[in-house]
Design a protein around this nucleic acid. Sequence first.
DNA 1: GTCGTTGCAAAGCGTTTGCAGCCTA
DNA 2: TAGGCTGCAAACGCTTTGCAACGAC
Lengths: 123, 123
Amino acid sequence: MTQRNTRQREAILGALGQAGRPLGPQEILVFARQFVPRLGIATVYRNVRNLVESGQIRVVLLPGSSDRYELAGKHHHHHFHCRECDGVFELDGCDEDFSGVTPSGFSLERHEVTLYGLCPVCS
Amino acid sequence: MTQRNTRQREAILGALGQAGRPLGPQEILVFARQFVPRLGIATVYRNVRNLVESGQIRVVLLPGSSDRYELAGKHHHHHFHCRECDGVFELDGCDEDFSGVTPSGFSLERHEVTLYGLCPVCS
DNA sequence: GTCGTTGCAAAGCGTTTGCAGCCTA
DNA sequence: TAGGCTGCAAACGCTTTGCAACGAC
């Protein structure tokens, strides 16, 4: 019933903290294997789901790309997605207001903004 | 070499025109089978790719959801994604400028904005 | 000791590819 | 008639699930 602390779960949280940017399951696996070499991909998927449900990490939804994950507790922000290396980078807080473009009848609850282009390394 | 006109391709374009909203591959298959009953899903995928490359249809990228497609030739716009019925609706043109939130070193090429909430029917 | 967790392998599922026959130009 | 296009089935890549052993509490 209760969530237990395992080396694997610590390694996954450590990977996300160390990376400092949203990671996909495969990226998490590579990072976290520094701490737990025999870590399996299924364990990554299972822990990621549990950590999202328990609110410790957050899902980063990207248009046209699979989900990434980042540590929870950050301010509202969006991401920059590099079309060359597929890396995702955090942007500073968002101050946009989209209530003006919401047609009448629709009830706006949240929004996602993703910028595309080249990151500094790929430029 | 040259793209040929087939019943299947016409059926797919017809489906997108008839629907009036972005459709996924499976949705396209259902709509287009009204015109070509034995249409296969592989043909949908192949034609969708060709039509995107030839500029006749456009990919609609949605965070956390698989790609949809719409007829090309529309003005730059974004979409509203209903969390209840999963329907996607077109919004009026976008006049946002995100160059201000792009960190130095990054080269901004395009952006995606998706609004979430409830559509008029689900409200 | 209990039972949540793990690694491995198999199963799922949406998308792509190989192939022989079909059909457009 | 050439060669792009089609339907079918197999292959693929990513994610989930089944299972027996493991280990946190």
